[in-house]
Design a protein around this nucleic acid. Sequence first.
DNA 1: ATTATGACATACAATCTGTATGTTTTTGAC
DNA 2: GTCAAAAACATACAGATTGTATGTCATAAT
Lengths: 194, 194
Amino acid sequence: MQQRRSNLERTEATRTALLQAARALFVEKGYAETSTPEIVAAARVTRGALYHHFTDKRDLFLAVLEREAQAVAGETEASGSPDLPPRDALLHGSLAYLNAMSVPGRTRLLLIEGPAVLGPRQAAAIDEAHPARTLREGLEAVAGSLRDPFPIAAMTALLSAAFDRAALAIAEGADPVAFETAMIRLVERVTASG
Amino acid sequence: MQQRRSNLERTEATRTALLQAARALFVEKGYAETSTPEIVAAARVTRGALYHHFTDKRDLFLAVLEREAQAVAGETEASGSPDLPPRDALLHGSLAYLNAMSVPGRTRLLLIEGPAVLGPRQAAAIDEAHPARTLREGLEAVAGSLRDPFPIAAMTALLSAAFDRAALAIAEGADPVAFETAMIRLVERVTASG
DNA sequence: ATTATGACATACAATCTGTATGTTTTTGAC
DNA sequence: GTCAAAAACATACAGATTGTATGTCATAAT
């Protein structure tokens, strides 16, 4: 009755089953309120499998997060419009990011649970891997044409936080248009040459 | 050998002992990694006392948070400078807030653990009780003199998020001046009439 | 075919949380 | 001042959770 699957296939199958089940539960109930017995039950595996593939619950959570962050990166990048003037590219990317973050559960995982479970440092590192880095590069691209410059790294962090709050608010049911408008306004004002 | 303390004194004493011990441990190790046996040991009480005064661990955490939020409110308000023009008052209050948030542990409690433990909704409610409300009122005060208006509620949320990130970054060791500069720049640009 | 390795499965020890049930102070009436 | 009621604890306990240790079975390597 055995399927005669290769080890690679077995690993792949149980890992993704665990990641999907864990993601759903972490989104629904949060990290702390989700138990490993629940996760393995949903994934139809045993705890032995979990602890074979991940060092602990936190490690599983980290894997879920990295996967999610990569999905965000992919989706925003996919919406990339090449050969736009820097400032327009920045504004365009802003909306793409908010759109990518509107996938259910994403804000809770990346913006709420992540920092608490992994600590602000590691969470910031994950953010810096793409969203924050992209934003910073966008700001650098327009900074050249500004009269009085500003601390780019700091401003990147501040705008990044604003983006995240906008995503969070939209996910919580706030009016998307209002937040998109406010966010665009913010970026426009900051990057205005005047 | 009994001290013959009144019930009010007893309650007050153990409650503050618990709140102080809990605060220190929550700051040091986070909410999840702090156990109630640890807390009561540090406070020199028993778990019975804890569960007599608070319904559960989360309730104790909530009490710690509200205390901390009130301290922030008090400190920023104390630095209040009456009869300043609205825009100057806003800028002045901005720095006061960042200053108040620089008390060790405050960012971790209010900005990291809080949202994760209580959920973004309740955490936002605590924020709205003073910092966000103050900011919104400040924005409303200057909004009148702006050419094209913006969604004030949304903009309040975004700037509030930026403030919090600045506070967090400074607490993590980033250059305070850079972040204060960037933050002031942000507020100035948004509230600029042009 | 046989052995080694990877992929699990099961059992266990240590904790932790919340509750239930005692015990000791205070308090309030008499 | 005495005594009952209530508040303020203290102790014991049940249930659940985490990580580990150990055992088993499928796959891979020789």
